[in-house]
Nucleic acid binder design. Structure first.
Lengths: 209, 209
DNA sequence: CCGCCGTTGACCAAATCGGTCAAGGCCCCA
DNA sequence: TGGGGCCTTGACCGATTTGGTCAACGGCGG
């Protein structure tokens, strides 16, 4: 790709990246047209091909960028939690969700794009990239659980499936809305907190409530 | 539409309907080509236009069919539960999920299609149809809750958000797999049951366990 | 033998596809 | 004042795909 892309102002880079991720997130690689991407970004199609030699190159760059962004966000959130010595399962997960929702605001369409890309039927994504995403997802969960204080849970509660349950719920909420305004995102977060509170209230030993 | 469509053997009707729902479920109305639908069904495109005058007519028929099918399934499951006098929240919900997963086997792509259609940006779906789906969803939840024995829950547990939490999880699981074989679907169901068991174990009063 | 019916491949004009190219506008340095 | 980059664009390309049509095929019951 044309390295001059990075000389553009950050907002313009984001505009192009976000538009492309939203479009690629709505359909398969083949069905997504470069025209629609350009139109969403309010930019000429020729400009896209000025910075990216190919539709495929744009796609692969976006995937790389998305994964890196996820990692960056995750690291920041874990570092933050670690800095404050936070070891509480729900509070840390809450921070995570908050950061995630913030990311949705900054990069609407990123999650959907990554999911799409992961399940993309065509072989546009190499197995190597696919594996990379796998690793990121698994490592984040493990790393998260290893730092938490799991003694607070009642006996018989498996924190691992609890993470999955809450993550599924959060992603489901994210998937079913096109929320972009801060108020909408805040509403989603409040709903998430209702679930988390209910679980915390009933899955923690009484002495930790 | 051409009423002779219903003279076809049921399997052939299902073949066409399912293929169309899968394809429409993967992309927007505009981006989904009649060619791909025909190809998936192993049928000539001309046949499609023999039974449905339009791409749009096919789409609207499918939506109607999908909603009716959902209703039919829901009624059957509720009647079954009512017949056995079942009033337990988790057992009834479990039956519901089981039936739902069965439907996924019989109609792969139905759920995704309905969701897509609901959030479809173009105005192919009239507000009236959209409202109809809304009503169905809300009514089923309310009707379900009104028949359940909610005294078993500990104080402070809101069954309504519990339904939503479990539904979100189930739909999330459904969305992230392309599971079609009975074994895969069974695996999903087992995962669902892990969540439900954990919640039941901790949200019910002890005397009801 | 006919007529009906489900089915098809070939075909159509129109739209859309990914990608190119010459040139316009703008700012900075000489 | 006159270039020389640099970001940006509209117009354009041939190739493919689009939704939709149509004449005709084959099998089957009468």
């Amino acid at each position: 790709m044309n390295q001059k892309f990075f000389n553009l102002p950050q907002e313009r880079q984001d505009l192009i990246r976000n538009s492309a991720m939203v479009e690629f997130g709505e359909g398969s690689f083949k069905k997504t047209s470069t025209d629609s991407i350009a139109k969403r970004a309010g930019v000429s199609k020729a400009l896209l091909f000025h910075y990216f030699k190919d539709k495929r190159e744009l796609y692969l760059y976006l995937f790389q960028y998305a994964i890196d962004e996820c990692m960056r966000i995750f690291d920041r959130h874990m570092l933050k939690a670690a800095y404050f010595g936070e070891t509480d399962f729900f509070r840390t997960l809450e921070i995570g969700q908050k950061v995630k929702m913030d990311m949705v605001r900054r990069h609407p369409g990123l999650f959907r794009f990554v999911m799409r890309a992961y399940y993309e039927g065509d072989n546009v994504l190499t197995p190597k990239l696919r594996k990379k995403l796998d690793d990121v997802l698994r490592e984040t969960t493990d790393s998260f659980l290893s730092r938490m204080d799991l003694h607070k849970f009642k006996d018989g509660v498996d924190p691992k499936i609890l993470v999955r349950l809450l993550t599924l719920a959060a992603e489901g909420m994210l998937a079913e809305t096109k929320a972009r305004t801060p108020e909408e995102i805040n509403k989603l977060f409040q709903e998430y907190q209702k679930y988390a509170d209910m679980l915390r209230q009933n899955l923690y030993k009484e002495e930790y409530l």
